[in-house]
């Protein structure tokens, strides 16, 4: 399946948010996830199934507010 993850095209076997986070070695408790501009609740990570072409944003807290536009969503 083709996804856009944090602005980059990605070919993946992951079908749910939880699987994708595991693939990327990201702890689910520390991030928020948005799919096609909709914020997905953490409780739904396991049963949110991607569709081909979905745009996924994974964000977390950083030291702020430096205006680091490169990491801006």
């Amino acid at each position: 399946m083709k996804l856009k993850v944090n602005g980059e095209d990605r070919e993946t076997q992951s079908e749910t948010i939880l699987q994708l986070l595991k693939e990327l070695d990201i702890i689910p408790e520390r991030v928020a996830v948005e799919v096609n501009l909709r914020v997905i609740k953490r409780a739904e990570f396991g049963n949110y199934w991607f569709k081909d072409g979905d745009s996924v944003e994974i964000v977390y807290f950083v030291g702020g507010g430096i205006l680091d536009f490169k990491s801006q969503i």
Partner: peptide, 19 residues
């Protein structure tokens, strides 16, 4: 303590977490 919300770096997972 104020923090900002930014993209997780998905290519370099060694980056530490503020929290």
């Amino acid at each position: 303590v104020t923090v900002a919300v930014r993209r997780v770096n998905i290519t370099d997972r060694k980056i530490e977490n503020l929290l």
